[in-house]
Simulated assay, not measured.
Amino acid sequence: MKAIFLPSTIRKPFAFIDHCIEKTLDKVGVHPLVHLPGKGFAKRIRQSIQQFQPAFLLANLGCRLTSQELEVIQSLSIPTVIWYTDDPYAIDQSLTTCRFFDYIFTNEEAAISVYQGAGCDNVYHLPLATSLPTFTPRKIALRYQSDVLILGSAFLNRLEEVDFLARRLPSSTLKIVGPGWRKLSNYRRLQDRIRGGWVDPKEAARYYSGAKIVLNIHRAANDPHLGQNRQGVAALTPNNRLFEIASCRAYQLMSYRPGITSLFAGGEIDTYNGRDELPERIRTLLKQEKWRQESAERACALTWQQHRYVHRIQRILKELPFESVKWKSAR
């Protein structure tokens, strides 16, 4: 079976998700025909359909598709699918493209009713996932080791939480990785503990594997960076780091989101509800090596069993109108 795949074409951070989707399609027995937006899009798509007879079209995010390209997609005779992988932060943009697709998958549970309200009939919740072997346990060099790791972009609420911790924990406890952290009020105090700029997924996995605690601070649903959530859609579903950290068999302490209870129903992931509890929780957890290891092992096992990209792609295929098709199993 073949399928047309339209990647997001956004380099950071969605290029890796594009890569995972493309490779996973092939892994489950669907050969992806990759097309990029741009000159000759309509002609290229129609030629692919005539020559290769793809069973469906799948797009990731879709924010760079023009109105003309969206109309081409809407006119196709094959099922068309889009996976929105940046909700709720970019949902304003997503609402301008959703009506052109037959099937809508969103990483954010709270967005389902929003798309249904926009007139979309087939809407499903599909969280992000982890990718093997990128995110797997590994032995790492001393430079990747830390007591408490914060990895990611310095969104406003993350800056506030790290500044809060910097005033209550020794600076040597923290390691901070990612772009934008010069905006910290405590930057001078922490600058020797900061590695600025983007790191690729393999490098991120090394940092996860080297940390005693990975502090997974969710971005606020109303974060002003993109300004693409004017409806104030909630953020109920945990981020992709939940799965990537767990997949490395690293212990994480995650800011609470309600969706964790359905994804890890056995309490495999520890959460916190507010920054005030963090300093004491961290001090206690740093002394509880056995607990951290056991929790990380349980979370890793469940992630490998249920939360890889192969599971997500199989879920998409399950919802499409195919009969008597046996997909390759997740291994």
Rank of each mutant, 00 (worst) to 15 (best):
A3K: 01
I4L: 10
F5W: 06
F5C: 04
P13G: 10
F14M: 14
A15I: 04
T24A: 03
R44P: 02
S48C: 11
F52S: 09
P54I: 09
A59P: 02
L61S: 13
Q68Y: 04
E71P: 00
E71A: 13
V72Y: 06
S75N: 03
S77K: 14
T80P: 01
V81C: 13
P88E: 02
P88V: 06
A90C: 04
A90W: 10
T96S: 12
T96Y: 01
T97Y: 08
F100C: 07
E109C: 01
A110N: 08
S113C: 11
Y115V: 05
Q116F: 08
N122P: 00
H125T: 03
S131N: 09
S131T: 13
S131H: 14
L132Q: 12
P133Y: 06
P133F: 10
T134K: 04
R138Q: 13
K139D: 13
K139L: 06
I140Y: 01
I150H: 00
E161Q: 12
E161K: 07
F164N: 02
P170R: 05
I176W: 02
V177F: 01
G178H: 06
K183Q: 15
S185K: 10
R193W: 08
G196T: 11
S209N: 12
G210P: 09
L215R: 01
I217E: 02
I217S: 05
R219C: 12
A220T: 02
A221T: 11
H225V: 12
G227M: 13
G227H: 11
N229D: 08
R230D: 10
R230G: 09
V233E: 01
A235Y: 08
R241I: 12
F243A: 03
I245Y: 04
A246I: 11
A246F: 03
M254Y: 00
L263I: 13
A265N: 13
A265P: 15
G266R: 06
G267Y: 06
I282R: 04
R283K: 15
L285V: 03
Q293T: 14
E294G: 01
A299Q: 09
A301E: 15
R312D: 09
I313E: 03
Q314M: 11
K318W: 09
V325E: 09
A330H: 12
